[in-house]
Amino acid sequence: MKLTWSDVTPEALFLNRRAFLAGMGIAAAAPALAATERLNSFEEITNYNNFYEFGFGKTDPAEHAGQLTTDPWAVEIGGLVDRPGNYSVADLAPENAVEERIYRLRCVEAWSMVIPWLGIPLASVLDRVGVQPSAKFVAFETVLRPEEMPAQRRRVMDWPYREALRLDEAMHPLTILATGLYGKPMPNQNGAPIRLVVPWKYGFKSIKSIVRITLTDTQPACTWQQMQPSEYGFYANVNPNVDHPRWSQATERRIGAGLLAGRQETLMFNGYGDQVAQMYAGMDLARDY
């Protein structure tokens, strides 16, 4: 069964005609969710998240991210591309090209949500800038603004935050650059004005507030992989069979489900295996975690 907006939480936003029409389109564009899976509310999504540049508590991003200036904003695209340059969010994601995608989000900390994103396929951006034949990876960087992002003033992490994908992962139709959620512009605490969303990977791969995208022929450095390589690998595919060294990944806690809901089984590739498993055929996913 594929979900439409009429199947999910009756937020007032769903009555908006644009959101409704986009939602009807997403039923055909994205993999189905189970009929029992409800969208998390806007309040849950925007008040329980990780954005360590604003603090390490789950509510710190909502409390502190309002000071981040998101307009104007430019994303520098360079490396092995034919048309490098600085692109505005409107250049990358014009309003008439934005789609709505309902995706599961699975955090490496073993909690999860279901989120209605607004965005565009990353592949469409890479096609526009012209990926050169020698490119094999796509690297991303978060903005570095310690004057607006208080945790960047402390050397608790190697700032700016960096992430990367293999080129085939970046070009996969499920991978999007998101500019909003719930029919609204992206809240600062969720990665405004533009972030990555890769739904079959743990959430830390979906880097927020992107200012740089670089195509390269060598595997780029990633922040968590560099800091704790025994715990966070380059691929970070959701895998219930490979535990984090400090906790099990076999089950997860759905945010907003209530104290009596219990935990639910984690799905391989976060439930997107039919679409993405072929990219990892022959790989040892316990080694290439």
Rank of each mutant, 00 (worst) to 15 (best):
158 D>Y: 15
119 G>N: 13
49 N>F: 09
152 Q>M: 15
82 D>E: 07
81 V>N: 00
51 F>L: 12
131 V>R: 06
99 E>K: 06
46 T>V: 04
74 A>I: 07
159 W>Y: 15
111 W>N: 15
74 A>W: 05
161 Y>I: 11
39 L>G: 05
84 P>Q: 01
72 P>M: 08
69 T>A: 11
37 E>A: 06
69 T>S: 09
53 E>Q: 09
85 G>P: 04
42 F>S: 10
125 V>Y: 05
48 Y>A: 05
130 G>R: 06
101 R>K: 05
39 L>D: 12
75 V>Q: 04
159 W>R: 11
97 A>E: 15
81 V>E: 00
43 E>N: 06
49 N>V: 09
141 E>I: 07
101 R>A: 12
163 E>P: 07
121 P>G: 08
131 V>E: 01
55 G>A: 11
72 P>W: 04
47 N>L: 02
46 T>W: 03
123 A>T: 12
109 E>F: 10
108 V>Y: 13
109 E>Y: 05
139 A>M: 09
53 E>A: 14
53 E>F: 08
128 R>E: 09
98 V>P: 02
122 L>Q: 09
100 E>M: 07
109 E>S: 14
146 P>S: 12
109 E>T: 14
121 P>E: 10
134 S>T: 15
100 E>L: 06
129 V>A: 03
99 E>D: 12
109 E>D: 15
149 M>T: 08
61 P>F: 11
141 E>S: 03
108 V>L: 13
47 N>A: 06
43 E>P: 01
41 S>E: 03
147 E>P: 10
126 L>Y: 00
71 D>F: 06
148 E>W: 08
124 S>Y: 10
148 E>M: 15
132 Q>P: 04
